[in-house]
Write a protein that binds this DNA or RNA. Structure first.
Length: 574
DNA sequence: GCCGTTTTCGGCCCGACTGTTTTCAGTCG
């Protein structure tokens, strides 16, 4: 049983306990543990019982349930709860506006077990007869049921980014002098987001009306003096919070989250006789304001340096801050090269010259042109002959004018065949400047096959790096079953770099694996995998992922000057 | 159910909005 499966069961127990109206702290214990397990980079099944017990939020009881899950694939406690409530009841809980109390009420009073049951009951007007419910609540539930089919949960943050930027721009026009900024998961750089959170500090009350009358607002969900929510065309929910200018820093901190980071930070405040909320940091005894105007001030008053938003996931950043050991996170301008891009030679939209010029305009000093190899026939992949022809062409561009010091490396994105062999012969790969290998097909292999496949590719002396190592597509395709721990070990041993691919739906490896790889001694690359000049800009999302993975410039090979970069490639090291 | 240089028992983060209410419960973030 893998971590996500364990986490799902623990979260379900939490949900079921909530419907049962159990002790809220017990519920929180299950949910915290679920989060911890889901984000733990190492498989719990392979850990010793003592190590599992050492995980934060996992005590004697939860460790026992986890062990039971790993050993038997099921937990008796979970099954008991499912005897009391049908599992379909959890669908009701995830409906907006429907919480545990309502679910319990619906189940006990009306025998509602499924979303279909709920829809019938609502249409027949039976909900309004329940205590605490009325016609409006009934209409709200019907609406949630309708929305459910249109908007399916989370979306790529890259998609939300443009919507958020336009909305923030509109709000700034209507609130001169106020601080308007995206907060929440967007500010933390998460790969997906559930909604768009915006904070306005020091803005007039009238800004709320500007917000709810924004031309792309489809419906107003809530409209208050300091908080409003709307649904924007395209499926996003956007929330706006208004706070006084004196609370700018406190509110930025509070609404940026994450929830886990904030709870840990508030714990820290309490232990120092302080109270933290979105308006400021206050002394508990006197109620005096200690900090609130700036985020830096909040952290400073709690004895900490400023913690970058990307690190605020309660994954050790508070301890690191306390110890003065926060990483100096990599920045976009640290990048000097981009080692993964395509041209019209395979499935790209522009030629090598145009791609290189665009990269130069973006401030880069070198690029590798890495078109597909022949196994990707539908992408017009190159065979050995074409690959070497293309390499000659790419290298010939280096002598031309107007390149402003940009250097092109002749490379290839070589397919790793299902048995781990490379798609092109060794002497061809040896004749190039850079080879990045990747898996594009037969992604459903079992763990042993997929792991061996990658290990075999890594063992090939002409492979310098592995592209999009897990093959996942965010919200669409799960990562392959490869044992990444063993892949990183081999990559470190052979000096093969691991890529953070910046395509907005890949971000592969992700933040957690990137951090794990670095800790295992693996060098990383941040690449655009661009198929057009415009897509070169996606590399910023890879940088965000690297930052969320605690990476510094020194951990990423393509921050090095060209000669140092070339010297660090596996093919040039002996 | 977890956790502890104040504690092995008694705590556990905090506030806004909505709807159904005569002072508050439920939900959300």
């Amino acid at each position: 049983m893998d971590n996500l499966a364990i986490a799902r069961v623990l979260a379900e127990i939490g949900d079921l306990l909530e419907i049962k109206n159990e002790n809220p702290f017990k519920i929180r214990a299950y949910r915290t543990a679920s989060e911890t397990v889901a984000h733990h980079p190492e498989g719990l099944a392979a850990m010793s019982p003592a190590d599992r017990l050492a995980l934060p939020g996992v005590g004697k009881d939860l460790a026992a349930r986890i062990a039971e899950l790993i050993d038997t694939g099921t937990a008796a406690y979970h099954q008991e709860l499912l005897q009391e409530f049908p599992p379909t009841i959890l669908d009701l809980l995830h409906l907006p506006g429907v919480g545990p109390k309502t679910v319990a009420l619906l189940y006990h009073q009306l025998g509602v077990r499924t979303l279909d049951d709920l829809e019938s009951a609502a249409r027949e007007g039976r909900l309004r007869a329940l205590k605490g419910m009325g016609a409006k609540k009934e209409a709200l539930i019907l609406r949630s049921l309708e929305d459910r089919t249109q908007v399916a949960g989370r979306r790529l943050s890259a998609e939300a980014h443009d919507t958020a930027a336009a909305l923030v721009g509109w709000l700034r026009e209507h609130a001169e002098g106020a601080a308007v900024a995206p907060v929440g998961s967007l500010r933390r750089g998460c790969e997906t987001c559930g909604d768009i959170d915006i904070l306005a500090a020091g803005a007039p009350r009238s800004l709320m009306d500007a917000f709810t009358s924004y031309r792309l607002v489809e419906r107003v969900i809530a409209h208050g003096e300091t908080k409003s929510s709307v649904r924007v065309w395209g499926g996003f929910q956007a929330d706006l919070r208004l706070v006084p200018a004196s609370s700018t820093g406190a509110a930025l901190q509070y609404f940026t989250g994450s929830k886990a980071h904030n709870i840990a930070l508030r714990d820290r405040a309490i232990s120092r006789g302080l109270k933290l909320n979105e308006y400021g940091l206050f002394r508990i005894d006197t109620g005096d304001l200690v900090a609130g105007e700036t985020e830096e001030g909040i952290y400073e008053a709690l004895g900490l340096p400023f913690i970058p938003p990307e690190l605020r996931e309660n994954r050790g950043e508070l301890a690191a801050a306390e110890a003065g050991a926060l990483p100096a996170l990599i920045q976009l301008q640290d990048l000097r090269g981009d080692l993964h891009m395509h041209t019209t030679a395979s499935d790209g939209r522009a030629d090598a010259w145009t791609m290189a010029r665009s990269a130069r305009d973006a401030g880069l000093e070198y690029v590798a042109i890495t078109d597909h190899s022949r196994a990707l026939a539908m992408a017009n992949g190159l065979d050995e002959h074409r690959a070497l022809e293309h390499a000659r062409h790419v290298r010939s561009l280096n002598g031309r004018e107007h390149l402003d010091g940009m250097t092109l490396l002749a490379g290839i994105e070589c397919d790793i065949l299902p048995d781990g062999r490379l798609d092109l012969a060794d002497d061809c790969l040896a004749g190039l400047d850079f080879v990045i290998a990747s898996v594009h097909s037969t992604l459903q292999q079992d763990e042993a096959q997929m792991t061996d496949r990658l290990l075999r590719a890594i063992a090939c002396p002409w492979v310098d790096a592995i592209a999009h190592p897990t093959g996942r597509l965010i919200l669409r395709r799960e990562p392959s079953r490869a044992n990444m721990e063993r892949v990183f070990e081999a990559a470190a041993a052979h000096g093969v770099a691991i890529e953070i691919n910046s395509q907005t739906d890949r971000l592969d490896v992700d933040d957690i694996l990137a951090r794990r790889a670095r800790d295992r001694g693996v060098a990383l690359l941040v690449d655009s995998d661009a198929h057009s000049p415009a897509a070169l800009g996606n590399i910023r999302w890879g940088i965000t992922t690297a930052r969320r993975g605690w990476l510094q410039a020194g951990d990423v090979l393509n921050t090095r000057p060209l000669e140092a970069f070339r010297a660090s490639l596996r093919r040039n090291r002996h």
